[in-house]
Structure formats: C-alpha cells, structure tokens
Design a protein around this nucleic acid. Structure first.
Length: 276
DNA sequence: ATGGCAGTAAAATACTGA
C-alpha cells in the first residue's frame, strides 16, 4: 500500500504533471491539496481513465483537497463538521481543507493546514484555532467511533489512521534549510509546533523520520528566491501514522522529480509505503 | 524591512500563498 501527498497549487494547471506522475508512480492513493477549484469543475476524467476514483472538496480560487484512490474509498466525509458537529466547528469548514475516507481498513485523512500568514496576525490565530479543532477531530475518529449526530451511534471503519497533507509547519529546525532567520516565524513558531505536538501525542508518528534523520530533505521551495536551485527548502508536507501502521511502514520518500519540471508546483510529492 | 514568483478572478490589479 502506497499513499502519497502533494500540494499541487491548482489541479487544473498541474493536471499534466499529476497524470504523468501517477503513470510513473501508481500509488494506491494520492492526496492533493490546493486544488483551487469547485467540485463540478475538477478535472477528473483523465484520472478516472487511469483507473482511479476521485473524491473532492473544493472551492473557487483557494484551498481545496482531493483524494485520488485506486480502490474506491468507503466512509468518505469532508470537513470537520461531519465528525464534530457545527457547534464545535463554527465557520472553519467554509475553507475546504479536510477530506477523509477508508481503504483496506486504513483511514486516510488528507489535510491542508492554513498557512497562517504571519505570527500574531488574524490568520495565525485562525491557524491555531484550526489545529485545536483538528486535534478534537482526530481524537473523535480515534476513540469515539461515533458520528456527531445526537443519539446516533455509528460504528466507524478504519481505526488505523494515516494523516497526510500540507501542514505548513516545519516540526523541527532541521526541517528548514536555514532555521536561524525563521526562528519564531510562521511555520516554525513555538505555538504552531506545540499544536502539532499536541496532535501527535494522540498517538501519531512521523513516517519520514522513521527512515531519515538528516537535514536537507524538503518538500517545499519558494518560487521567488530560486529556492529549489539552491535547495533552500522546508519540510512541511507530512505523513503521520498510528502505531500499527508506523510499524508496517517500510519507506517514506520525497520525490523531487516533479519540482524540476517546467511550471512546477512549489511543493513535491511524498510517498509512504506500508507492508501488508 | 520589502520583494522576489505563481495562480485565480477578472480584465488591472488585488488577494493569497509560505
């Protein structure tokens, strides 16, 4: 079982790259972020012709997530509200950043965590609030096995979980090419890292760091500063696994090839492989 | 300290990203 994550920065602009990549890397599931398109306009045909099922939660211009899955997903839901209810979630589902479904007993949760703009900004507060609700969402999926519908008990599938996506957080300084100037700044601030740790303490582990402890491994490079050419990047796209899946993981690799293409996304795919 | 580049919506710039 291979599960990949890739922030494509517009699926319509990057469709050729995604189709080519899936032909070269026939993963079981590909989680996309920043699709930037409403569901009706999502370019699904070529992906379906490759033999994939397409599940989307999109909006105009911004955000948007999708799961491209070879077997059909079961128990698909989008947003936090489906699991937590409106009272807890408030307006957080207006931005389309969450989609989940189950294959082979594994719940895949595809996330596009808010960027947060700058520490101290309104968007930063939104990011922290979003991460707090994400923790509740994951806790509910891990433990309660119930839907948020009052009085209704629903047995949920897929208690083993693979969270993946664009977290917009570098967990450690070694995930940043040059951490010093970014100390305390967006994607590296203490409160963001603490919020991520609080989530991982529910029982998730970083698949990539099981296999590689080195710095210099990045998943995003800034368009503006020739970042990729100089490998001035950040590792902000992650897979987090529950213990049984973590044990079963046999590799987690960053594929830098798509970042070298013309007109690339600023992110590149990350793939986790799980043994049977 | 700011902008660099890129995508979207829309028709020129404004907004957002990270």
């Amino acid at each position: 079982m291979q599960i990949a994550t890739w922030n494509v920065n517009s699926i319509r602009t990057r469709l050729d790259h995604v189709v080519q990549w899936l032909q070269d890397n026939p993963v079981d599931a590909l989680c996309l972020q920043e699709t930037k398109v409403v569901d009706d306009k999502f370019p699904r045909t070529l992906l379906e012709e490759l033999g994939y099922h397409v599940y989307t939660s999109g909006q105009k211009s911004y955000n948007g997530v999708a799961i491209i899955s070879r077997p059909p997903l079961t128990d698909v839901s989008t947003g936090f509200t489906a699991i937590l209810g409106e009272d807890v979630v408030g307006d957080l589902d207006e931005q389309k950043r969450v989609i989940t479904g189950v294959i082979d007993g594994i719940r895949i949760i595809n996330l596009y965590v808010p960027n947060g703009s700058a520490v101290g900004s309104e968007k930063y507060e939104y990011k922290l609030r979003w991460l707090k609700v994400l923790r509740e969402y994951l806790q509910t999926l891990l433990t309660n096995k119930t839907l948020a519908v009052p009085g209704e008990q629903v047995e949920r599938e897929g208690i083993e979980i693979c969270i993946c996506g664009d977290f917009n957080i570098a967990p450690e300084d070694k995930d940043i090419h040059d951490p010093a100037p970014y100390k305390g700044r967006i994607m590296a601030s203490e409160l963001e890292r603490q919020a991520l740790i609080a989530i991982l303490e529910l029982g998730f582990a970083d698949a990539f760091r099981k296999f590689n402890q080195e710095t210099g491994n990045y998943t995003w490079w800034d368009y503006r500063t020739g970042g990729f050419r100089h490998n001035r990047g950040w590792r902000i796209d992650h897979h987090y696994l529950t213990p049984a899946l973590y044990k079963k993981s046999i590799s987690c690799t960053i594929d830098v090839a798509p970042r070298k293409l013309t007109q690339p996304s600023d992110h590149t795919p990350v793939i986790v492989s799980l043994s049977k």
